[in-house]
Amino acid sequence: MLQAELPGARAEVESLASLQHAETPLKRFVALYAESRLALVAAGVLVLIVAAAIAAPWLAPQNPYDLQQLDVLDARLPPGEKSAAGMTFWLGSDAQGRDMLSAILYGLRISIGVGAIATVAAVAIGLSLGLVAAYAGGRTESLVMRVVDLQLSFPSILIALVLLAVVGQGVDKIIVALITVQWAYYARTVRSSALVERNKEYVEAARCLRLSSARILFRHIMPNCLPPLIVVATVQVAHAIALEATLSFLGLGLPITQPSLGLLIANGFSYMLSGKYWISFYPGVALLVTIMAINLVADQLRDVLNPRLAR
């Protein structure tokens, strides 16, 4: 699972790149994006965070999943204290004697991994269903869209909550829950842009050339539906991470032995009033910075990729 997250994140970056070099060079996109210095900083921070998450096993002073390395006697030490074995807890330790810095790095891995995998899978499902709906029309379309409408009229947290209450905890289960609550956004986004594209001249032209439906769909219509999808997807990664954190906080998300950021915060939640702020403060900051960086990047992407705001 942890290996799988890497291609996920990369695929997103790649699709983003391939999108642009088709017509105008990547340079134009980069130049447009770089217009906002804040967005540039956010992108930099995001790259750093993802890199840190990927490199967690090499960066972290301790493997927080290996019970042999943990000692309950080191529990709840404030930042800067040394463990019994002589290691320094730069960000303190939690109730298990886990080094918070290591736990945050590994937690980022899980949070971002879960968010990215769920989003990529949901994009794939939403994209295909949205395209098919738009292209096929008729019964198929109304069936797909009925389901989409129905699902979007319910808050994601509620659907995820019921689903998790029914299937239980676990990384795989929370990913399934996140996919279930997300795919409809993409299906709707893709369908509406595909509907616009379908009636454009180039599709007309392709039809005249007797190209196969599948070819028209995937080679011609799909690339043009991607920009809005990317914007939605970026925002949704942030949403997925936040949703996972909330579900974990409510006790319905991930198992405690491999804590995500949300679960780390939830664990430290009970220590807030007693002044042991570091157990939930630092994971909270990590979560905040991650979500904020993604949101800022998404914001700028929206401006850059929105044709109506083209300057």
């Binding site: 019970l67 042999q68 943990l70 000692d71 309950v72 905890q169 006790g251 405690i256 032995t257």
Partner: peptide
């Protein structure tokens, strides 16, 4: 449970923890 698992792992009984509601 996690503390117990740590302690058992120390004497050679490799212990995993599974927590659930």
């Amino acid at each position: 449970a996690q503390a117990v698992a740590q302690m058992l792992t120390r004497v050679g009984i490799q212990t995993k923890v599974e927590a659930m509601p």
